[in-house]
Design a protein around this nucleic acid. Sequence first.
DNA 1: CTCTCATTGATGCAACTGCATGTATATGCT
DNA 2: AGCATATACATGCAGTTGCATCAATGAGAG
Lengths: 158, 158
Amino acid sequence: MFACICQNGAVSGRVEEPSDEAFAAWARVVRVSQSLMARVEADLKAAGHPPLSWYDALLELKRAGPDGLRPFQLQKKMLLAQYNISRLIERLVKNGYIQRLPSKEDKRGQVLKITRSGRMMLRAMWPAYQTAIQTHFAAGLDSKDLQALSRILGKLRR
Amino acid sequence: MFACICQNGAVSGRVEEPSDEAFAAWARVVRVSQSLMARVEADLKAAGHPPLSWYDALLELKRAGPDGLRPFQLQKKMLLAQYNISRLIERLVKNGYIQRLPSKEDKRGQVLKITRSGRMMLRAMWPAYQTAIQTHFAAGLDSKDLQALSRILGKLRR
DNA sequence: CTCTCATTGATGCAACTGCATGTATATGCT
DNA sequence: AGCATATACATGCAGTTGCATCAATGAGAG
């Protein structure tokens, strides 16, 4: 009933097997994305900056505006495990880039806001980040590639 | 002399700034690849299997055939730091999935070979891995997408 | 209101990773 | 050969992550 003919000609049950094409694409996604991330992170570090996750978190908090974000909201945006967010927040607070305020609506919770120092860090990191994205990513692709990449990967968001 | 007009209309010096298009594509690569990896790793773990890096290493050693691979060769294939390879090998040896033999050509070095037990682990992991790739990746994309993705990401290999 | 279950966030511990460096062998220069 | 430098691999230490679990509060059922 669920049996079907797959792209690679195999017959299977409930879940199709990935075609060779699919496995090749998967393997490339794994290798290339790992390599890209590593190169960009390395450039950031070489410029004396904190890791990308700090930039991400600060950017989300800046975008969130004056109301800030709750940790669990930040977690959803960043796709990190809860304990990872908890500790990222810990480090950002310790370094003075964000402040942690008790939430008024929910006594369990807290509200995170970016500080002036956090905004400065964001600005300080941007040139190095920008250059790294250009060097390792954008320089190799034309506009059509970029659009296609966005479109295709967009299909994979859960 | 190096000044130029970028895609987004800005004028810059030595290195172009990434266009908005490029930054959007970059952000998507970061988020989606992280999410994909996490979901596939989670499925593997849920099925009681070791991490993907074990699969990768074992697969490379299987493909390498009877001559095996030197650690530095494995390192190049897997794009991991040297000390990471060293420790991955340590764990694989400890679990009996590979064996470490002294190299005859180079007394500094060693030769790694997959064991029978390692081959069994590869076979044991494949169904779960396959299903995860299909579920989280291939199911969302058609053949044209897969080819385009491979082609575009292929441009980014260093 | 009370009880139960869900949600928010933190944390101890073990495993893993990054960094710096160490040891041993190889290679190349004079 | 003798010496300097490069390559192959390992490892101590500190920082980070994953896992399990905890404490506190919220929210819904009766």
